[in-house]
């Protein structure tokens, strides 16, 4: 039973099907232990975008206000995709490396522990 409903075999409308986003998909990005950004952020982005675009446009747009942003050593960054460790391929598209609609990408920056080390 996928829902308790008065009609049999009730099927709900999927409000966030990828088709509804005009060619884009939703991508979530969070910076671990940097809660000055209160929550991970959401972007509409083309599945054909290379990961480089995420790194060079989306991430700076979202997180560059943080005083530690300029200190990030991107070669040392640890990535997770939907909970699993992950190594992004800068030149492959999101779709090619399994970053599908409503995927959550997290990055951790070892050595950078947020404002005064408090995880903010």
């Amino acid at each position: 039973m996928a829902v308790a409903a008065i009609t049999e075999n009730y099927v709900g409308e999927r409000l966030d099907r990828v088709e509804n986003f005009h060619g884009n998909q939703v991508l979530y990005i969070g910076w671990d232990h940097h809660l000055m950004f209160c929550a991970p952020v959401a972007f509409p982005v083309s599945p054909q975008a290379p990961f480089r675009q995420v790194l060079e446009e989306l991430i700076p747009g979202a997180f560059s206000l943080h005083p530690e942003f300029g200190e990030i050593d991107w070669d040392e960054v640890q990535w997770h995709l939907n909970g699993e460790p992950f190594t992004p391929d800068m030149d492959a598209t999101l779709a090619e490396q399994g970053i599908d609609h409503k995927s959550a990408v997290r990055f951790a920056t070892p050595g950078l522990n947020g404002i005064k080390g408090c995880g903010s």
């Binding site: 039973m1 996928a2 829902v3 308790a4 409903a5 009730y10 099927v11 709900g12 409308e13 999927r14 409000l15 966030d16």
Partner: peptide
Amino acid sequence: EPEKYVQSWL
């Protein structure tokens, strides 16, 4: 009850 919450108006 996924058939209910796929309808969330986020």
